[in-house]
Design a protein around this nucleic acid. Structure first.
Length: 162
DNA sequence: CGTTTTTGACCTGCGC
DNA sequence: GCGCAGGTCAAAAACG
C-alpha cells in the first residue's frame, strides 16, 4: 500500500496499454485552462464492432450489451479536475478506488444517443496529475468552439486504429 | 422550474 | 458461494 507503483491499472489494461505521445499534447489542450503536458494513452481498442441492435437481450436484463468501445486515457497535469473539452457532461457517479485517496468521477455525454462516457481521476501520488479516460466516440459536433480539440480526437482515432 | 450534482444503494465480475 | 472492488442507478438536494 505504502509504496504502490503509480497508476496500478488492471492487469488486462496493462497488457494492452500503449502510450502515445502526440506532439500537440505537449503544450496541453487548448480548451483546458491550466493543463500542461498531456499524455495520451491507449487503454483499450474497440475495433471489433459488434452489432448493437436491440432484441437479442439474452442473459442480460435490460438488453444492454457490453459493447467494446474504444477507450482513451489522458494524463494531464492540471489544477482543475473538470477539463472543458467543449462537450456537455452529466455526472452520474463517484466512487473511491483503492490505492487512491481521491475519488473517481463518472461522467456521461448529455447528448441524446451519444453514449460516450468519461471518468476523471486525480492521482494521489501526484496531486497535479488528472487522468481523464474517454470511452467511445462522439457522434455529434461540439457546442463550443474548442479550437482543434476535434482534430486531436481525429488523431486519437488514427493512432488507436491498430 | 428544468437541469445537474450528490450520495447511498444496487449490480456485476472476479478472486479466493 | 462469498466478499471485495469497481461501475451504475436513481431519488432528492442543489443550482441557475
Amino acid at each position: 500500500m505504502l509504496k504502490k507503483a503509480s497508476i496500478t491499472m488492471n492487469k488486462q489494461e496493462d497488457i494492452s496499454t500503449k502510450n502515445y505521445l502526440l506532439p500537440n499534447f505537449t503544450n496541453g489542450f487548448p480548451g483546458f485552462r491550466d493543463s500542461i503536458n498531456t499524455t495520451m494513452k491507449k487503454v483499450m481498442e474497440g475495433g471489433n464492432e459488434e452489432e448493437e441492435k436491440n432484441g437479442s437481450s439474452v442473459g442480460k436484463k435490460k438488453g444492454e450489451k457490453k459493447v467494446k468501445r474504444p477507450r482513451f486515457a489522458f494524463q494531464t497535469r492540471s489544477q482543475v479536475d473538470i477539463l472543458d473539452d467543449g462537450y456537455r457532461w452529466r455526472k452520474y457517479g463517484q466512487k473511491a478506488v483503492k490505492n487512491n485517496k481521491f475519488p473517481r468521477s463518472y461522467y456521461r455525454c448529455t447528448h441524446e444517443g451519444c453514449n460516450v462516457k468519461k471518468q476523471v481521476q486525480r492521482l494521489s501520488k501526484d496531486e497535479g496529475i488528472v487522468v481523464t479516460t474517454y470511452e467511445g466516440i462522439h457522434s455529434h459536433p461540439t457546442e463550443k468552439n474548442s479550437d482543434n480539440f476535434e482534430q486531436i480526437l481525429s488523431q486519437m482515432k488514427i493512432y488507436t486504429r491498430s
